[in-house]
Computed example of a mutant assay.
Amino acid sequence: MNLVSLPITAIYAALSAFLVIALAANVVRYRLSKHVSLGDGGHKDVTRAIRAHGNTVEYVPLALILMALLELNGASDTALHIYGITLVAGRALYGYGMLFPKPSANLPRQIGVVTSWLVILAAGVQLLVI
């Protein structure tokens, strides 16, 4: 049996897991404070907490899969760390921007979205050329 080791991807998977749990706990905190059992109960702050968590859960798995495939295919440690740091930092900024919103789309949210897209796009392109 061949064992595969993906130590760099594992670091960012663990950090992403901590972020997902923190965002999920925030949803629970808001729901408990508003006495909401399911959904958002019509509360905008609960909706924002749900979307901060949901958006992270939507983007992180694909980015981590791409990183794992790159690591398996011999991508440089530097590239993997750049992708990982960018992903986790961007997701944290997005969560912050969703939880402390301004009247319109704010800079932390915008940076979070753009960095996630860039990681997924760059890793996808790199997979095609290595």
Rank of each mutant, 00 (worst) to 15 (best):
R91S: 02
Y59D: 02
A105G: 15
I65G: 01
V60C: 00
A122P: 07
I130D: 10
P7V: 06
L32G: 09
N106G: 07
A14C: 13
L38C: 12
G42C: 08
I85H: 06
H43G: 06
A17M: 07
V4C: 08
T9S: 10
P101G: 03
G90A: 02
I130T: 15
L32C: 11
T9I: 02
Y94A: 03
L66D: 01
I111N: 02
T9N: 03
V46L: 07
V28C: 13
T56V: 13
G84S: 04
E71C: 03
Q110D: 08
Y59G: 04
K102D: 12
M67C: 06
L38T: 15
V46A: 06
L128E: 05
V36F: 05
L32R: 13
I120R: 06
D45Y: 10
A10I: 09
T78A: 14
T86Y: 05
I65P: 00
P61T: 05
T9R: 02
S16P: 04
K44L: 13
Y96L: 09
N26L: 08
V60K: 00
N73S: 13
L128R: 04
G95Y: 00
I65W: 02
L3M: 07
A63S: 11
A63E: 01
F18V: 13
A75D: 03
R29I: 12
G39H: 07
A14Y: 14
P103G: 12
